[in-house]
């Protein structure tokens, strides 16, 4: 699974979450906008975290060096 595929998964999850929030708790346009903002922010935060960790391991400059005892 590459970077783009997982990113796409995040996007899809975000869209599904927004849609379900829209369908499940529809409390008027202003409340819906708040829910949408929250879901987008949460998705972006989670994606950012994952992307940073993934990118950092893509081309490692150092590799795991096992301890002597193991």
């Amino acid at each position: 699974m590459g970077f783009l595929v997982t990113t796409l998964i995040f996007v899809v999850i975000g869209i599904i979450a927004s849609l379900s929030a829209r369908i499940c708790c529809n409390r008027g346009p202003s409340a819906n906008l708040l829910h949408l903002t929250l879901i987008i922010t949460a998705t972006v935060c989670c994606w950012l975290m994952w992307a940073i960790v993934y990118l950092a391991q893509m081309n490692p400059l150092i590799v795991p060096i096992l301890n002597e005892s193991e």
């Binding site: 997982t6 994952w50 960790v53 391991q57 893509m58 490692p60 590799v63 060096i65 096992l66 002597e68």
Partner: peptide
């Protein structure tokens, strides 16, 4: 070499989180 030079990355990057 695993305790001196270290392991080597042979597969795809670990897909979710820290390896």
């Amino acid at each position: 070499d695993s305790t001196t030079v270290g392991l080597i990355k042979a597969r795809d990057t670990y897909p979710f989180g820290v390896d």
